[in-house]
Design a protein around this nucleic acid. Structure first.
Length: 856
RNA sequence: GCGGGCGUGGUGAAAUUGGUAGACACGCCAGACUUAGGAUCUGGUGACGUAAGUCGUGGGGGUUCAAGUCCCUCCGCCCGCACCA
């Protein structure tokens, strides 16, 4: 028997699909639409099996929905702006555009090899002016709507290179190339007012029932709505000055022992001018970098400014004002009041600086006399004490009453605050979308007139100087002011690359429109019915994309408010890591496993240390290039393995032996259809025989259940069960012996039904089989079979019989059996009798169709 | 630090969502056919036990007729944290 020649077959069908254009989405199709989208890739160079996983998952859905009668939109593009291209430019002296283009050429070919059913006519490239001109238009629209504004904010500054660093370029507080300690530097930057939609973004999560619960939770926590109060504290030493704080615990004001200001608080700047020690402390706070992780893990420190403030409720009490390194300017008002007894950070701070710790809430099951903090803050619910007019009240009532009092005194009011911060979009880099703004010495900030869009990036720059090449370019930034005509300068910052990925799913609906979005088409295809991508995007990308959709809705571009109806977040692909004797990472192909299970280096035989399996990453060299796998086993085998081994939302462990197993299965399938070629080419589904024997009927029941259950599995993303079911069913077909014409018909029905169900996983093989059995057209266009309800009904079902919760027997019974009949049968069963051992029966539980339990 | 998640045989996992734990594979063991294949076919394979049986879903506790699934607690691992995408 000849083996399946995947190389020849896959090449052939790939080309045939392309030429026939069968995966093009028709805007005018009468069929119901279905939009399935995988997160578009960054063109990093080569496709690895992690990519393949993402795209194979999407392709199963796309092909399945096509078979189910939907007009499927399944597009692909390139998220092409970003730091790696700029790094490549610096390191290898290539232009970012050129580097990106080459990578895309290569990866597009690899994507086509996988056999994904994309509509390539809609391919888009985010670094092309044809794409980014539209987001420049959006930027100007947002500016008009006051969704864009400018403010000062901090960046990571490398003082040696004179460059702004991304967080990932800061390692242990030092610049990745220079090794110099990173400073926080204030720059004027552009922000998107995402906070205007904070409430809508939060409420919008509610109906997204087809998103993973954990993603909704993460987004909800990120938006971080909290109810509390804004409180004003009068400063004793400075006339007219006060400090405004935000708190979620206004009821604990009687336990206040200090005020904490952010180092970036406006009040602090003034004080630092005349206080060198404070100035040093502020500088120390700013040396921490901009990441919240650093802020949270740093040792809590403060600086006593010497100022004090009046307690709003207690005339004789004053509180000291500290600058505290754990208070950030971006949240609330940049100032807090410290209540050490009921906040752990404040507790640590108060202990360190010997400040009073007065508890004001005791747990319900304790009492003011008995309650003891016991070395840590108490953050639970409870009853107020030590709190004057709040004494004896539960926390929630105390909160309302405290706020009412503050309002009466005109020292505060109820307030809702979000943790969500506005989105800083300025990047001091070359390889991003230019911000369409001109800075004029006399007119100030002037938007680029729409007729002058796009503002394109200059090409052929030099990357030998650190910093933003747009800044050093001899001509690019020098333009005349569109308002007064005098010499002016372009904005040299570019947009955050999250900008491109925030609306590409909308552009796919009308990729060739001269307008940014063709509203009719966008409203036709949107929302995305199924979105698929990595869990690492759970917060930022998805939140920005949701925000952008709301913002564009606000500007009249679309009626859509929530872009993604259903979301699947896939786990990572992992692989073992290898190190040689010197501790250097090795690629898997450099390692040989001997028969004794020893790992040695391929070229010199020295021992290799096998590390644990980790997420595939270039730095650890444990990446498996998809190209190698596909050329060795074929795309179908790789797809089948990737889908079989783990459920999509879990991490996947890549093993070579697994792919070999799926390759063997591909051959088994091919052989199965080769044997029955003539049976299938003469099969007529409409000429159903009248009578089947029990064996054939059994096969038919299994066939129809198979049709139903595989669809159910795909609907629920249980792709590993879907493939397991295929193998189980193929085992059944292979064991089936044909003894009559009716048997033949049942077998043909089985094989015939199986083929369209195989298409989503192994699309190439299916085309080959489809051709083999002499059918016209493409297997990719076959419809999902329809199952017969009558054949799904079981004649007998198996009931597990337990005695005291332990399974002791099973019984075959008709589904309709009543409890009393079943009970009689159960009690008559020898195993059951033995385990009851004459004891009195206390209870008999029967869950129809599932289980019976005798309790004695 | 904060937020989210995961933990089941030698391995990847399944379990109708509270109802027969280990489907389907990988690997391994035994055999058949071959003896050119990265094969193919048959049987076995959670642990302990000759067996009846007992134990078993990271550890401990709880709810229930019934717990991998729900609750509490501890341990381990992973992801995100706003300039990586």
């Amino acid at each position: 028997m000849s083996r399946y020649n995947f190389k020849e077959q896959e090449g052939k069908w790939k080309q045939a699909w392309d030429e026939a254009g069968i995966f093009r989405a028709d805007d005018k199709s009468p069929k119901p639409k279905y939009y399935v989208l995988e997160m578009f890739p960054y063109p990093s160079g080569r496709l690895h099996v992690g990519h393949v996983r993402n795209y194979a998952l999407g392709d199963v859905v796309a092909r399945y929905k096509r078979a189910k009668g939907f007009e499927v939109l399944h597009p692909m593009g390139w998220d092409a702006f970003g730091l790696p291209a700029e790094n490549a430019a610096i390191r290898h002296n290539v232009q970012p555009m050129e580097w990106t283009r080459q990578n895309i050429e290569y990866m597009r070919a690899e994507l086509k090899d996988i056999g994904c059913s994309y509509d390539w006519d809609r391919e888009l490239l985010s670094c092309s002016p044809d794409y980014y001109r539209h987001e420049q238009k959006f930027f100007l629209d947002f500016l008009k709507e006051k969704l864009v504004y400018r403010k000062e904010s901090f960046v990571n500054w490398d003082p040696v290179e004179g460059t702004v660093l991304a967080n990932e370029q800061v390692i242990d507080g030092k610049g990745w190339r220079s090794g110099a300690p990173v400073e926080r530097k204030k720059l004027n930057q552009w922000f998107l007012r995402i906070t205007r939609f904070a409430e809508e973004l939060l409420q919008g999560l509610q109906p997204l029932e087809e998103w993973p619960e954990k993603v909704r939770l993460m987004q909800q926590n990120w938006i971080g709505k909290s109810q509390g109060a804004r409180v004003t504290f009068q400063v004793n030493e400075l006339e007219e000055k006060s400090v405004e704080i935000f708190t979620t615990c206004p009821h604990t004001l009687f336990g206040a022992s200090f005020i904490g200001l952010s180092a970036d608080h406006p009040l602090v700047a003034g004080l630092a001018e005349t206080n060198p020690a404070l100035k040093t402390f502020v500088a120390e706070c700013r040396a921490m970098g901009t990441s919240t992780r650093d802020l949270d893990t740093v040792e809590k420190k403060g600086f006593n400014t010497g100022l004090t403030v009046k307690h709003p409720f207690l005339k004789d009490v004053s509180l000291p004002v500290f600058v505290a390194n754990f208070v950030i300017m971006e949240y609330g008002t940049g100032a807090i009041f410290g209540c050490p007894a009921h906040d752990q950070r404040d507790y640590e701070f108060a202990t360190k600086y010997k400040l009073p710790i007065l508890p004001v809430v005791y747990p319900k099951d304790s009492s003011p006399q008995k309650f003891d903090l016991d070395g840590q803050a108490y953050t639970g619910d409870g009853i107020m004490f030590n709190s004057d007019f709040l004494d004896g009240l539960p926390v929630d009532e105390a909160m309302t009453k405290a706020i009412a009092k503050l309002e009466k005194l005109e020292l505060g009011k109820a307030e809702v605050t979000f943790k969500l911060r506005d989105w800083g979009v300025s990047r001091q880099r070359y390889w991003g979308c230019p911000i369409p703004i001109i800075h004029c010495p006399s007119c100030g900030i002037v938007p680029v007139p729409e007729k002058d869009l796009p503002v394109t990036l200059p090409e052929n720059l030099s990357f030998d100087k650190p910093g933003n090449p747009l800044d050093h370019h001899p001509r690019w930034k020098h333009v005349d002011c569109p308002q007064c005509g005098e010499p002016a300068e372009r904005e040299t910052d570019t947009l955050d690359t999250f900008f491109e990925s925030s609306w590409y799913f909308l552009r796919f609906c009308s990729p060739h429109s001269p307008k940014p979005l063709d509203k009719a088409l966008v409203d036709h295809w949107m929302p995305v019915d199924q979105y698929i991508g990595g869990i690492e995007h759970a917060i930022l990308h998805l939140l920005y994309a949701r925000f952008f959709t709301l913002a564009l809705n606000h500007c009249g571009y679309t009626d859509t408010k929530e872009p993604f109806t259903r979301l699947l977040t896939q786990g990572m692909v992992c692989h073992q890591t290898y190190k040689d004797e010197s501790g250097a990472w090795l690629y898997p192909e450099e390692v040989l496993i001997t028969e004794e299970g020893q790992a040695i280096k391929m070229n010199d035989g020295t021992p290799v240390k096998i590390g644990r399996s980790e997420k595939m990453s270039k730095s650890k060299q444990n990446v498996i290039a998809s190209e190698k796998m596909i050329s060795e086993y074929g795309a179908d085998a790789v797809r089948l393995f990737i889908l079989s081994d783990s459920p999509p939302d879990r991490d996947l462990e890549w093993t070579a032996s697994g792919v070999e197993g799926t390759w063997r299965f591909i051959n088994r399938l091919w052989r199965l259809y080769t044997i029955h070629t003539s049976l299938l080419s003469h099969f007529d589904r409409t000429h159903e025989p009248k009578d089947f024997d029990e064996k054939a009927l059994d096969l038919r029941r299994k066939t129809h259940k198979f049709i139903r259950d595989t669809a159910h599995d795909i609907d629920r993303f249980h792709f590993n069960r879907y493939t397991a079911r295929i193998r189980e069913y193929v085992n059944i077909i292979e064991d089936f012996k044909v003894c009559s014409p009716e048997d033949s018909w049942a077998l043909a029905e089985a094989l015939h039904s199986l083929l369209p169900i195989l298409v989503p996983v192994v699309p190439y093989l299916c085309e080959s089989i489809h051709e083999l059995i002499g059918h016209a057209g493409f297997a990719a266009e076959l419809e999902w079979p329809i199952y017969d309800e009558k054949l799904i009904q079981d004649q007998l079902i198996t009931i597990a019989i337990q005695v005291n919760g332990k399974t002791r027997a099973t019984l075959e019974v008709p589904p309709s059996i009543g409890q009393e009949d079943l009970k009689a049968k159960v009690l008559d069963h020898p195993n059951v009798k033995q385990h009851i051992d004459g004891a009195a029966i206390k209870r008999f539980v029967y869950i129809p169709g599932r289980i019976a339990n005798v309790v004695c």
